[in-house]
Design a protein around this nucleic acid. Structure first.
Length: 797
DNA sequence: GTAGGGTTAG
């Protein structure tokens, strides 16, 4: 046991040590941790100044969790401890926690400072009206507002101000309050003008001019005044004006440079951002953590991996390392750099070494796993997360949806709601894409209805997802309807709509839409060209394909990637132009990989070009020996010409290498329920009725001239047996079920995981004529609309 | 003044 003198001596020592902690001391956080650990070990109970100091250092080092923990241990925290934590939570965006502490504080011990902290909290949470309400409460209770109060109230007003008139009224009120000469208050007033200028409803140039006038009239300007102006120009997209402002400054302020760099990054001028970063070095302006985070972000978004890595190396070398090393923002930017450049494991390493992590850090790693398609790791990481926000959920939902886990995606969407998160439009987009994968049209329609009810119907992300969903569910008209009614369109919307038309066999309309996109001055990107080339290929438009392919690099400066070449090879081979295709493979600038050989092989199969097909298959066996598609295509090719020995060889090769063919299955939605059929299905409860219905239908079809085409049966067997095998294909069963169960005359929409079989394709043409109904089949590649004996693909698929 | 999301093709 220690006596009172010992305790006093200890207290003095701790107080002195904690006094060394200040914002400029990079060791503050580790000093505080060490001192704290010592207190615990010696049984010392911190109180008063020492306690508040500890809380303060933890807060300033972004370790609010430790700060809050300490706070909870105090029986009656004083107003300083309360205010520190309110401010920290406010700053970190945890306005709920800030409010909890504030409203638990008795009126008797409140002061202006704690009101100020809470008003800022509301502002940080984008709740301008809440902030103003609290300001009224402060006045009602007789507290005197100070300059800090005015500053934070102005911050809140900046969120809700609507037009120039209101800005001028606020200006008058500031002058009347007597604080019209205080720099910090005027800076806040500047930001009211500047933020209002970025509202789409006002004339930004006029408000920026008013801001400029205010700035020119200020007798004293500080870093923030300059930065606010530069940031204002940046926000309003006037990058050149911002740059002029910056270049006109005599003093070289880091903050101002940072604002400019972040503006460049935000508007996608990554090279300019890097250039400024270099220039700072030459001018001797010290980089700070904001410079680093912005530049790392530029590298991440532009994919400048090597530059980013150099910056990381520099951070590790520099004398500033101890402080930068544990800075949350820098580490988050680093983790983001790595995952966006496809290096999840490196991102994870950064994450593991971070002394303090926040939701941003966790979300970054989650995005990394999702983006890399490492869904299992993403799932377990998601479950490990100490807390989640809206973003976490949307990343995980769309990650599942994108990677083919549609059902799990939808389940997670529901779980998100049950855990109290109101889905935003991005979350809806994820769930809608899940429906697209599942071809769950009714579910997708229900989500669409909810979207309209919640007022998200003008959302770009949700709209784009809806276009895709309707297109993938086979209702291209509905997709078009969404496209036409969206208030804003971006290149993604155009790409999605062009792709939808192309997949459904409306090649001419797809290209028309593409031309319209160009007329509207929307710049096509690499995805647009992928879509356009696919469309040309589906529609057999060789000339057009060539022309668009040339214009891609010639007119739009987009360097064709392997996937673009693959589309061209596809286009040429389908049209039977094998020598042109070979020429292209030999002269292209990228090394031909799997997509190229797959396109070649598929084309060879259609035209029975055995020699070239075998060459392509051999390359594919080398490059991806475990891929089932190659074996299937090759054995298909042999089967078509009756080389059953070779078919057997391929099958044996497949067995020896342990490659399994993905089983074919088809599904159809009837009365909001998805019914799945496998080949020769015996599992579905009503399959017997389907078999007899199909048999009956078969007789009528034969009368119109349908003959089962047995060359699509890959095994060598008696022809009667072959006909039986054909009649049990999963797509036939699903279509038969649809014809039996759906209301008379309704379009039958069936989905298949693999490509449609040639005999089924032929059979559905006859079927559509016999029953006088439209049959739509989505296979692994595209859509087929069978109507009155014809298919929209023109038998070219 | 700084860091993290979604939609398109295959």
């Amino acid at each position: 046991m220690k006596n009172a003198a010992d305790v006093r001596r200890l207290a003095n020592r701790y107080a002195a040590q904690l006094q060394q902690c200040c914002p400029h001391n990079p060791m503050s956080y580790s000093i505080a941790r060490t001192v704290h650990a010592h207190m615990i070990a010696s049984g010392f109970k911190p109180r008063g100044y020492i306690l508040n100091r500890l809380i303060d250092v933890y807060c300033k080092s972004s370790d609010i969790v430790s700060a809050h923990h300490l706070f909870d241990e105090i029986r009656q925290p004083d107003i300083v401890a309360r205010t520190t934590l309110i401010a920290a939570h406010s700053f970190a965006g945890n306005s709920n926690l800030a409010r909890e502490i504030f409203f638990a504080t008795p009126l008797g011990i409140r002061d202006t400072v704690c009101y100020n902290a809470m008003i800022t909290g509301y502002s940080h949470n984008n709740d301008g009206f809440g902030a103003i309400e609290l300001f009224r409460d402060l006045l009602r209770n007789g507290f005197r507002p100070d300059n800090f109060t005015f500053t934070s109230v102005l911050g809140a007003l900046a969120l809700i101000v609507e037009d120039e008139k209101q800005c001028q009224q606020i200006h008058c009120a500031v002058v009347k309050s007597g604080s019209g000469f205080v720099t910090s208050v005027l800076n806040a007033l500047l930001s009211v003008f500047v933020k209002c200028a970025s509202s789409p409803l006002v004339s930004s140039s006029s408000l920026m001019a008013a801001a400029r006038k205010l700035f020119d009239e200020m007798t004293q300007r500080d870093e923030l005044s300059w930065t606010t102006m530069i940031a204002g120009y940046v926000r309003n997209g006037e990058l050149d004006a911002a740059r002029q402002f910056l270049d006109g400054m005599t003093e070289k302020l880091v903050v101002a440079w940072n604002a400019m760099i972040s503006g460049y990054v935000h508007h996608g001028f990554f090279l300019e951002a890097l250039e400024m970063f270099r220039k700072m070095y030459l001018l001797g302006i010290q980089w700070d953590e904001f410079t680093y985070t912005s530049v790392l972000s530029a590298c991440a978004n532009a994919g400048f991996f090597r530059h980013g890595k150099q910056v990381h190396a520099y951070i590790l070398r520099t004398e500033a390392r101890p402080s930068l090393d544990f800075l949350l923002s820098v580490n988050n930017a680093l983790a983001t750099l790595y995952w966006k450049c496809g290096k999840v494991d490196e991102a994870r390493q950064v994450f593991n070494q971070m002394p303090v992590k926040d939701l941003v850090s966790w979300n970054a790693i989650l995005s990394g796993y999702v983006n890399a398609g490492r869904i299992d790791e993403a799932k377990s990481f998601f479950e490990e997360m100490p807390e989640r926000n809206l973003l976490t959920w949307t990343v995980m939902i769309s990650g599942l949806a994108q990677n083919g886990f549609g059902e799990e995606g939808l389940k997670l969407f529901n779980r998100m709601k049950s855990e109290g998160f109101e889905p935003c439009d991005y979350a809806f987009a994820g769930a809608i894409i899940a429906c697209a994968w599942l071809a769950a049209l009714m579910h997708g329609q229900q989500l669409h209805a909810q979207l309209v009810r919640l007022g998200f119907d003008s959302s770009l992300s949700a709209g784009n997802a809806l276009i895709t969903m309707y297109a993938k569910c086979g209702v291209v008209e509905a997709a078009h309807c969404v496209f036409l009614t969206m208030p804003y369109l971006d290149s993604v919307s155009w790409n999605a709509m062009i792709a939808a038309l192309g997949q459904h066999g409306h090649g001419a309309q797809a290209l028309e839409l593409f031309e319209l996109m160009l007329q509207e001055d929307i710049l096509p990107d690499r995805i647009t060209f992928l879509t356009v080339l696919s469309t040309c290929s589906h529609a057999g438009l060789v000339e057009e394909g060539h022309r668009y392919f040339k214009s891609m690099s010639g007119l739009y400066g987009i360097c064709p990637g392997e996937d673009h070449y693959a589309r061209m090879i596809d286009l040429l081979c389908r049209a039977g132009k094998f020598s042109e295709a070979k020429d292209m493979i030999e002269t292209m600038l990228v090394e031909p990989g799997p997509p190229i050989w797959e396109a070649l092989l598929a084309g060879c199969r259609i035209h029975g070009n055995m020699d070239l097909g075998i060459q392509a298959a051999e390359r594919l066996f080398e490059l991806m020996p475990q891929h089932d598609g190659t074996y299937v295509l090759l054995s298909n090719m042999y089967a078509t010409v009756g080389r059953w020995d070779d078919v057997a060889k391929v099958r044996k090769l497949m067995r020896d290498k342990g490659v399994k063919k993905e089983p074919g299955c088809s599904w159809i939605e009837v009365e909001n329920k998805v019914h799945v059929f496998l080949v020769d299905d015996i599992v579905h409860p009503e399959v017997q009725a389907v078999y007899s219905y199909l048999e009956e239908l078969g007789l009528k079809m034969r009368k119109l001239g349908y003959i089962p085409d047995t060359k699509f049966v890959l095994h060598d067997m008696e022809s009667e047996q072959k006909e039986y095998v054909l009649s049990t294909h999963s797509e036939k069963l699903a279509v038969g079920f649809g014809l039996l169960k759906l209301p008379l005359g309704a379009t039958v929409r069936v989905f298949k995981n693999l490509r449609i079989c040639g005999d089924c394709h032929n059979a559905f043409k006859f079927m559509s004529k016999v029953v006088g109904r439209e049959i739509v089949v989505r296979d692994g590649k595209r859509f087929h609309h069978f109507k009155n004996g014809e298919c929209s693909c023109g038998n070219y698929w």
